[in-house]
Design a protein around this nucleic acid. Structure first.
Lengths: 88, 88
DNA sequence: ACTTTAATGATCAAGAATGATATCGTCCTA
DNA sequence: TAGGACGATATCATTCTTGATCATTAAAGT
């Protein structure tokens, strides 16, 4: 499933045209991103929750040279499925 | 951020009332859930991707009795942030 | 339809998530 | 608006993801 599938779904279930449906999807995505950027937790009961936490992992790996690499720490988004998605 | 915040955002950016905005959000959520239930991958470029994988963890822990518990295996939803959310 | 550009896969080691359950805190439906 | 239902938390050992890079696959904008 890709973004366009969601747009088509809205188009089908509502009375909006493609452009309008797309703008709705974009609005939602922008809203979600903005919330996460602000370190806000997102909780959609019955679907899932997203939480921003700080990363502690401080290394990675270079495949070609086969050795470790130091990595700058940052943030991480923790995804947790809700009840409806727990036992799929 | 909770579901209602998204509804309000749609209400603000469009010309729809609360009920209409809510139904749009529900439509999208149902569509996403249905996709995951069918083991389909979801990929929204610039936002994130969701993939269903099989669980291999086969144990847990009883806090009160402080001992291990056998767990039935199942599925798991893997969440991967897209480029816009990689360095938030 | 075509092009652009993001996502995936592979690799390894250490840090992190998973999983059951009861209680507390909070979303959201009636 | 209020209570009912769902989510967060803590616990520990094992499984799993993270992280950089580049080629390959594919999303999505034109």
């Amino acid at each position: 499933m890709i973004k366009n599938d969601i747009v088509l779904e809205i188009e089908k279930k509502s009375e909006f045209n493609r452009a309008k449906s797309l703008s709705i999807v974009e609005t939602i995505l922008a809203s979600l991103k903005e919330s996460l950027v602000k370190n806000e937790k997102i909780e959609i009961r019955g679907f899932a929750s997203f939480k921003v936490v700080s990363k502690k992992t401080g290394y990675g790996r270079d495949i070609r040279r086969k050795k470790q690499i130091k990595i700058k720490k940052g943030k991480r988004i923790k995804f947790k499925p809700g009840q409806d998605l727990k036992n799929i």
